[in-house]
Design a protein around this nucleic acid. Structure first.
Lengths: 194, 194
DNA sequence: ATTCGTTTTTACCAATTGGTAAATTTGTTG
DNA sequence: CAACAAATTTACCAATTGGTAAAAACGAAT
């Protein structure tokens, strides 16, 4: 049953570059699958990220706890997106953020070790991952910047236009946290928009 | 007199990896220098980025105009940072942002063409640029996320701690725009902080 | 279906921020 | 140094948002 998630990961990669059957096998052999339920923690803030996730179905959120102890949702990741705490994963340092399932989610994942093996075996795979990663970072920045200087209602409206699939699947309090407002404010905004 | 800026660029690169004299020459030969004054536009929103800048002295800002016609400062870049609109530069599409000097600034720059030549001639140079770029993107995201859910005064306090050199050199209105508040609010905040 | 715990909604008031406008300061140029 | 333009500060009021608390709605488990 997990077979289909591996296939959908490989199919995703093929959008960027053709992959030979041999290379497909190498990738599949180094891949694991995992399913998690809402609230489950995939990486705890303070630990070092040792896995690269790819989301086949569901939504993950990157969360940090600020000085006042408040949870802040930094961003959401959905189907066909990679997820890790890159700074931690790359540099072997403790993560400043946690990775948490925002709803029930199906994943495939590489351990860092396996990923490096695949990089070695398939040089263009490394290139692909890097360019996908870079584009993902640019997208995250673009979304955040689009909220700049906007009031709460405008940010919410942009959010449901930019990320409608996520808007429908995660909790109000997560969205409020992501938009930098209280859940009471977001609830009021929703009411005003009806 | 521009000689020193080329040298400081090469010295910056050497922080990441040793560079042979031959390679230094190749890099220097493909580099240009340029000085700009405050307000000067290095890339106009809507045009395609064809240059990669490296700041030797001064501050640049990335600015976009939102739907309401308001200028929004997305971020500042200072000494020893690269600057371009990466999405435009990489994919040859029109930039959604402008690059503007936030104060008098000394630069070195590669045209895209020259940069690709150096990439070809010095493979590890490409690797270095890519990893520096990736780290820079992560840093931008981290800074933005640190403002999330904070009120205006807290954002300003974090800003002057995180980017003190910039806080001292760019205009109040640019900082207000960057922090997503009006210049009147920022002026009031400064007053309250004395 | 009922209960329990969690999430969302609502309400009220206080605090923060925005908008408009004018005064002041700063910096530049003749 | 005078005059001008631009940037910053100040003031006032309106609008938005936060904080606290309670009610209502929802979902999971018995």
């Amino acid at each position: 049953m997990q077979e289909k998630n591996i296939i959908s990961f490989i199919n995703f990669l093929k959008l960027f570059r053709n992959i030979s059957a041999t290379d497909e096998a190498i990738i599949a052999d180094n891949l694991q699958t995992r399913n998690v339920n809402e609230y489950e923690i995939l990486l705890q803030q303070g630990k070092t990220a040792k896995e690269l996730f790819f989301i086949c179905k569901g939504v993950l959120k990157i969360v940090s706890v600020n000085e006042k102890g408040k949870d802040v949702t930094q961003f959401f990741l959905k189907e066909n997106q990679f997820c890790t705490v890159l700074n931690s994963f790359n540099n072997n340092v403790p993560a400043n953020e946690s990775i948490v399932a925002a709803c029930n989610t199906e994943l495939v994942l590489f351990s860092k070790e396996k990923l490096l093996q695949v990089y070695k075996a398939i040089p263009y795979f490394k290139e692909s991952i890097h360019s996908i990663t870079q584009q993902a970072l640019l997208d995250k920045i673009a979304i955040r910047n689009s909220y700049l200087g906007e009031d709460a209602q405008t940010r919410y409206q942009k959010f449901i236009l930019q990320q409608p699939e996520i808007a429908l699947r995660v909790s109000l309090s997560d969205i409020a946290s992501y938009l930098g407002i209280t859940q009471q404010s977001l609830s009021r905004i929703r009411k005003n928009m009806r």
